[in-house]
Design a protein around this nucleic acid. Sequence first.
DNA 1: TTCGATCGGTTGCATCTTGCTACCAGCCGA
DNA 2: TCGGCTGGTAGCAAGATGCAACCGATCGAA
Lengths: 154, 154
Amino acid sequence: MVKRTRFNDSDCPVARSIDAIGDWWSLLIVRDAFDGSRRFGEFQRGLGVAKNILAARLRTLVDGGILDVVPASDGSAYNEYVLTPKGRDLFNVIVALRQWGEAHFFAPDEPHSEMVDRRHGHPLRALEVRSTDGRRLNAGDTVVNKVGHPGRGT
Amino acid sequence: MVKRTRFNDSDCPVARSIDAIGDWWSLLIVRDAFDGSRRFGEFQRGLGVAKNILAARLRTLVDGGILDVVPASDGSAYNEYVLTPKGRDLFNVIVALRQWGEAHFFAPDEPHSEMVDRRHGHPLRALEVRSTDGRRLNAGDTVVNKVGHPGRGT
DNA sequence: TTCGATCGGTTGCATCTTGCTACCAGCCGA
DNA sequence: TCGGCTGGTAGCAAGATGCAACCGATCGAA
């Protein structure tokens, strides 16, 4: 099976990332992996996804270098799925999605799962996009150079 | 049409975010909106997506409060799609995906579209997850409290 | 004002993907 | 050795996706 690329602008890192992750289930698998899930059954119970879908997603995540299959840590004959360094680098993505969701989809007092600093149990500081010299940037302060179109693009 | 919720753990902000965005095309639409696309035709040419898919995605993004339909800024009778504040808050998500893609899917010298600081033309600083008191955190320094399971969860 | 081109879609249809259920082969403890 | 758990695969129905054709409104030029 040749690797299909779904999007036509594959020189954009955003598109390549999206293509590599595959689908939303995959991202939820990664989220659960960050939260400590390792075994097939853990993911299945945590996500409520059909087993064939889960099996396929785990396979593509392993093929994509985001998860690794390792022998179970508890001595049983089963395997475990653990994040590779590349998979752990998705942490920012998960945190960004989480903070966006917290900001826009929950009433102020509505209970929800919450990511906290392990040391103090405090919520995290909001992510901030910064320039190399440390200024805070928002979308309007940035510009995307398409390949072949360097510079500001008058 | 009742709002379907695809994922069973809707108390997780990550899952709600994913549900709200809808699919990957929607996120690429948002990316193009950040890059300045406003018109139906611009999105269609930029993404190479089928028109019926694009029309459906634009509708869900508008319904979801991520895009707004406004009269065209050039005086023509057509409409434009612009990001709402909620949509602009996806900036961190886009940047996180972009940085992950840059780090893992391009050779060091491979050309790719690049987001730079408008003022100096420099690339952005890598996103950093921090605690409220400013320490840098990575995945292992955080813990997710599920609703109904407060505390560290031994 | 007329005419052709463009814009912004909608509709129908074939195909691909998804998700459900059933099934099944190893493991595992007793 | 037996019964239940784990980690899948197989088949099938339903829904999503993508392509192409079509279409009315609008625009620009003559």
